[in-house]
Design a protein around this nucleic acid. Structure first.
Lengths: 210, 210
DNA sequence: CCGTGTGAAGCTGTTCACAGCT
DNA sequence: AGCTGTGAACAGCTTCACACGG
């Protein structure tokens, strides 16, 4: 009935996260119940898709009534594995890495940036503005283990990314968000997502060209 | 024959950018000619897809031979509108905005971060490490016009994003890269791409959950 | 009667396989 | 002979439309 994670498509997983955000907004407006049609109209989604996405994981709605905002939100938090704080390590304490470490958007209890890593002796031992500590990359396995870190964010230059990725896998990280402009080969069981800023800009450029 | 930009799918546009990167790498290795099959094997792509993507825009290859690296690269640069430098404005001179402004990955001649914008009087008039100047957001239309800026990057907090986006449209920007965690409504003719870090992390979290 | 959950239809994007050009 | 360019097959995702349960 409930499918293997690997088999659920990226689009569905992404939309679950979108639905969660919509519900959080509705909750702050003290809306108690919502139908898939109302959700769809309000947030520019397709109602059938919402129902189908949710139905993959169970029957969260009530026929003839709709979904209870609070209940559905808790279900989504559970599905997304956000019923407990997930700890994140950022490898690469450059400007981007430290900006992400201090980025307010993550500090809602779902994610905690537990540590930064770098090779620069001048950075190791320091802390960011919000107090995230910078460790030597060689300490990655130990810190990941002791702090219960599960997700790695790679913000090193492209040349260093492949080696850093190997270290992340070796340290036991099971999910990687990669900002380096290179394609990484991941072992089975590890999930990778790329955020390639240059490719994003080039794609935009394509549509305004000519 | 050559299709309207709007009709070309996002995936194709993104892959053009990927192909460009592959060719740049081959060029640096002084490889002169390449077949779709070689490209596919080397960079883990599908050869039929490469051919089909390229064939949308013209006949860039030679049957029985393959593609000339240099020629194809120039075609791709042209298609992506990168045969001249595209100027970019970043709105939001916080840590993320300044990190992006100084990010080395852009400085290959294709893009130039021409200006930063903020509302904080303490930031206005300053420059980043690499010399990008911070302007008052109210100066957006004037600076966009005088500097020939075409692409906007939004790195303001979610609450401010909708208003900032309107200012970008008003200033005539035709492409927006949005880092704020909100869905923006764009007028026709403007291209939007979202980079939502929280959604990326939540999607990763989904796959390591349970 | 209303809105969910879902089979079926429709559509988009990917891959195959080969005709045709060099 | 070799590899591109491309119609046809295929796969996956989205949307429709309605049966079913509250």
């Amino acid at each position: 009935m409930i499918p293997e994670r690997q088999s659920v498509s990226e689009s569905v997983a992404t939309r679950l996260s979108v639905y969660l955000r919509c519900l959080t907004l509705l909750e702050s407006e003290e809306v108690r119940h919502v139908s898939s049609e109302t959700l769809a109209q309000r947030f520019d989604l397709n109602s059938a898709q919402i129902r189908k996405d949710l139905a993959i994981f169970g029957e969260f709605g009530v026929r003839g009534v709709g979904y209870e905002v609070d209940t559905l939100k808790r279900h989504l938090l559970g599905l997304l594995g956000l019923d407990r704080t997930r700890r994140v390590a950022i490898v690469g304490a450059g400007h981007l890495g430290t900006a992400l470490a201090d980025y307010g958007g993550f500090h809602s209890g779902e994610f905690e940036i537990a540590a930064l890593f770098d090779v620069d002796p001048g950075k190791i031992g320091t802390r960011t503005r919000t107090g995230v500590r910078v460790y030597d990359v060689s300490e990655l396995p130990g810190v990941v283990e002791s702090q219960g870190i599960e997700i790695g964010v790679i913000t090193v230059p492209g040349e260093a990314a492949a080696e850093v990725a190997e270290r992340c896998f070796g340290a036991g990280l099971k999910a990687i968000l990669n900002f380096a402009p290179v394609r990484l080969n991941v072992p089975p069981g590890v999930r990778l997502k790329n955020v390639d800023l240059k490719i994003n800009l080039e794609t935009l450029s394509f549509y305004i060209a000519k």
